[in-house]
Write a protein that binds this DNA or RNA. Structure first.
Length: 276
DNA sequence: ATGCCGGGCGAAGCCCGA
């Protein structure tokens, strides 16, 4: 079962590329961030034509997240990150997806929920950028991360296979940037930002890409500006974090870097995991 | 120090991003 996440930087202007990527890689679940449109303007029919069920939490002009799933979306549990009724940004959507029937695999079902064939809970997020530091935008980012921490603590109590995916806007470690010193004053790489991300991981989550790819040079974002792609000045800020019950089923993880050289690319590329 | 590039909005130039 393949689950992928992609900040597509505008779903309508990126529709042809999104459809080509879905056809080429065939994820069972695809999570988008920065769809930059309302629920009504989301091109659901195009994705339904490829066999996907669609759940959208959109917003006019910017932000916005969506989940596509070939399996039924059993429960679109949450739209909008809990913990602050005054936060109007559309940055979080959570759904439960039924896993494919297990087939001949003899694995017992004790650790993956109890419904038929088991389920995977998908939390799809677009974490605030937070720049510039020292402003209310950075305070909003840190507050958002605290709210995420509290929400994830609750989810982990369910003891389900859980994937927390999306654009975290966090460079976790120096190895996750080609030129870490150039991000020293950026919200994505502040000590407070990195500490909040570690606190999240320390709940017992596994960073799927890093678990499979310990080497340097693994990036998910290259700025449009200053020839960042051509010079490979990338950063790794799009992540898939797994609960223990999901990590038990990890088979592989990777980055679809090839989309960055397409015509009119997103500045982010897709990240995926393959689960048993 | 700022802009570089790019989408959205809306019809010029600003907001937002990372």
């Amino acid at each position: 079962m393949r689950i992928a996440t992609w900040n597509i930087n505008g779903v309508r202007s990126r529709l042809d590329g999104a459809l080509a990527w879905l056809k080429e890689t065939g994820p069972d679940v695809a999570c988008f961030q920065e769809i930059k449109c309302t629920d009504e303007a989301f091109p659901a029919e195009a994705f339904e034509g490829l066999g996907y069920n669609v759940a959208v939490h959109g917003q006019k002009g910017f932000n916005g997240v969506a989940i596509l799933s070939k399996r039924p979306l059993d429960e679109v549990a949450v739209k909008g990150l809990p913990g602050d009724a005054a936060d109007t940004h559309s940055r979080y959507i959570e759904a439960v997806v039924s896993r494919p029937e297990p087939g001949p695999e003899p694995r017992p079902e004790a650790h993956n929920g109890s419904r038929n064939g088991g389920v995977v809970r998908i939390a799809n997020l677009y974490l605030p950028n937070g720049n510039p530091i020292g402003t209310d935008k950075f305070a909003y980012k840190l507050a958002w991360m605290r709210r995420l921490q509290e929400h994830v603590e609750g989810l982990l109590g369910l003891e389900e296979p859980l994937l927390i995916v999306g654009d975290f806007n966090v460079i976790p470690e120096p190895v996750d940037a080609r030129n870490p010193q150039s991000w020293a004053d950026d919200a994505l790489f502040q000590p407070e930002t990195r500490a909040a991300f570690r606190t999240l991981l320390n709940l017992g989550l596994t960073d799927a890409v890093r678990a499979c790819h310990p080497e340097p040079g693994v990036y998910t974002f290259w700025d449009y500006q200053a020839g960042a792609w051509q010079k490979d000045h990338g950063i790794r800020i799009d992540h898939i974090l797994m609960s223990p019950q999901a990590a038990d089923r990890l088979k592989a993880s990777g980055i679809d870097k090839f989309t960055r050289s397409w015509e009119k690319p997103s500045d982010h590329v897709p990240v995926w995991v393959e689960l048993a």
